[in-house]
């Protein structure tokens, strides 16, 4: 097991707990963040059913995406410092990216769609050579376009690309750096919520407060 995977499977439950404890406590600022971090760190290393949370986190998945982790970090910092790192359009880009990628990837991974083709196979660095280039290049292009247009979600995609180049995760497949079932499911729910809000006459996108968890 790569050492980076241990870091990753520790970081993900820690950030999730941090985010939840911020929401539950209502604390903000440095002191709030520090308190939530201490509580989360204790909970992460507490032996739940004989093992700390990283053990159970790895059991569930060792390949939580870089993008999900990036979004969690943004949400945590936005709540702690009210910095508004992500604006509504940045969140909207994140949910659209996650929803589109999920619709492209998961049905195929379950064996649906064109029977003898798996979209996930495009994510291996060396297997389907000609086609894989389009996936790598496509992710880079999406990041470049968003950054160029001033959308901050582009930086998160860029980080995922860098994480992939560094071989940070257990997986060698680039899809696992860009997407995971949790991020995909949340994205689909958020897109449906946005559509419902629009049909109900509300704004198309959530406010920065709502989207960042406030």
């Amino acid at each position: 097991m790569k050492e980076t995977v241990i870091i990753w499977t520790t970081l993900v439950p820690f950030l999730l707990l941090l985010w939840f404890s911020q929401r539950m406590s209502g604390l903000t600022g440095v002191s709030g963040l520090a308190l939530a971090a201490v509580v989360s760190a204790v909970a992460v290393w507490f032996p739940w059913f004989g093992h700390p949370l990283p053990f159970w986190s790895a059991s569930l998945s060792a390949n939580f995406s870089v993008i999900m982790v990036g979004l969690l970090i943004v949400a945590v910092f936005d709540r702690a410092f009210e910095t508004g790192i992500f604006r509504p359009r940045d969140w909207r880009a994140a949910w659209i990216f996650g929803a589109v990628a999920s619709v492209l990837l998961y049905p195929s991974a379950l064996g649906l769609g064109p029977q003898n083709f798996d979209v996930y196979a495009l994510g291996w660095p060396w297997l389907f050579w000609g086609q894989s280039v389009w996936l790598f290049g496509g992710a880079g292009f999406a990041a470049a376009l968003l950054i160029w247009r001033g959308n901050r979600f582009g930086y998160v995609i860029f980080l995922a690309m860098l994480g992939y180049a560094a071989g940070f995760q257990e997986s060698d497949n680039i899809w696992d750096y860009l997407l995971d079932p949790v991020y995909g499911a949340v994205s689909l729910v958020m897109i449906l919520w946005m559509v419902w809000r629009r049909r109900a006459g509300g704004p198309l996108v959530p406010t920065s407060e709502g989207a960042s968890g406030r």
């Binding site: 660095p125 060396w126 050579w129 290049g137 376009l145 860098l162 992939y164």
Partner: peptide, 25 residues
């Protein structure tokens, strides 16, 4: 602009780094 260019290059980097392995697919 610089970061956008870097992101584009990052997208191409795995392709470049693993270019020899493609012949072994």
């Amino acid at each position: 602009g610089w970061l956008a260019a870097a992101a584009l290059l990052a997208g191409l980097a795995p392709w470049w780094m693993a270019r020899d392995e493609g012949t072994k697919s």
